[in-house]
Design a protein around this nucleic acid. Structure first.
Lengths: 163, 163
DNA sequence: ATAATACTTTACTTTTTTGTAAAGTTTTTG
DNA sequence: CAAAAACTTTACAAAAAAGTAAAGTATTAT
């Protein structure tokens, strides 16, 4: 379980634009320079962010990229999902079944269930963190932080199935 | 950010042994068969688990693997860390600096800070989940689950540095 | 129009991760 | 002691991810 390079670098590029706000744009070269990345790699990252609708591009002379929404309206969840996909593969049991066509735990896979719970849990954190929070931390040195007082309860798997 | 194949398969192999308890052992062939994995791949997974001290091996005829501790004494954090390493690279800023030798945000990297917070947060969940919880869920259909009532607070970065 | 600027797309190389194969070592049984 | 069972190690092949390069397309200024 690891944060990918694409996620880290892509987030950093987006933060550069987030600091500028939706009304200002920067060229790939400017963004690459600010983050110490190569121009081709920055192009790739920005292309992914554009396809996800997080930034928009203006082509031609005087063009560049701008963020599509305000920093306080974009969550870390959106950004990391755009760059790295979901934490758990949607069809884990069919994709990672080893030699067999289907997971041996096809009827009830508690590993999958616990990983799904973890994904939900992580999503909660990521949805509670906006780009604005990160920008503010840069300026003030204070970062919003989960308080590690997690309430654990027993929930029925059946609840999830029936909604 | 993704759960790796090694983490998922490794966890499954360990769970097979956890269900048997520390006093019973199974051969690689038996474990592979139960999880629908190839024998060479299972060997690799069990080798990693052995080096991490989570299982022990008895060689020779009649040998096999057994878990070293009870299922309720092994957390998901230990298992996933053994199989996949930490969520965030320890020296992210020096390793993923792009073209430069050091991260451009070397003095204060709020991206790194927020990812460290995420790692701590995830660790909390993983430390609260034992192999026994997963085994129980297999039997009963009930899985312990974080209640999504996360208390967010503002914490000083300085707090982290000074302890 | 034309040239310069700047995004876009495709293809390719390198590195890492996954997964397999085979030869080696240890222990037990006959 | 020899053979079989079973773990161990090393090396290798295949697939995915990371990162680079180059040719293409759109826009604007002259």
């Amino acid at each position: 379980m690891r944060i990918s390079a694409l996620e880290k670098y892509g987030l950093r590029c987006l933060l550069v634009l987030a600091k500028e706000g939706p009304d200002k744009q920067l060229s790939i070269a400017e963004i690459a320079e600010k983050e110490g990345l190569s121009i081709p790699y920055s192009s790739k990252l920005l292309s992914i962010l554009r396809k996800a609708g997080l930034v928009q591009a203006a082509r031609g002379r005087g063009g560049g990229f701008s963020i599509t929404r305000r920093a306080d309206d974009i969550t870390l969840f959106e950004v990391l999902t755009a760059l790295g996909g979901p934490l758990v593969e949607p069809h884990h049991c069919s994709k990672y079944a080893g030699n067999l066509k289907e997971c041996v735990h096809i009827d009830r896979c508690s590993v999958h269930d616990v990983l799904d719970n973890l994904a939900d849990y992580v999503e909660q954190f990521l949805n509670d963190t906006t780009l604005e929070d990160i920008i503010r931390a840069d300026k003030t040195g204070y970062l919003k932080k989960a308080d590690y007082k997690i309430i654990l309860s027993k929930n029925s798997l059946q609840d999830k199935l029936t909604g």
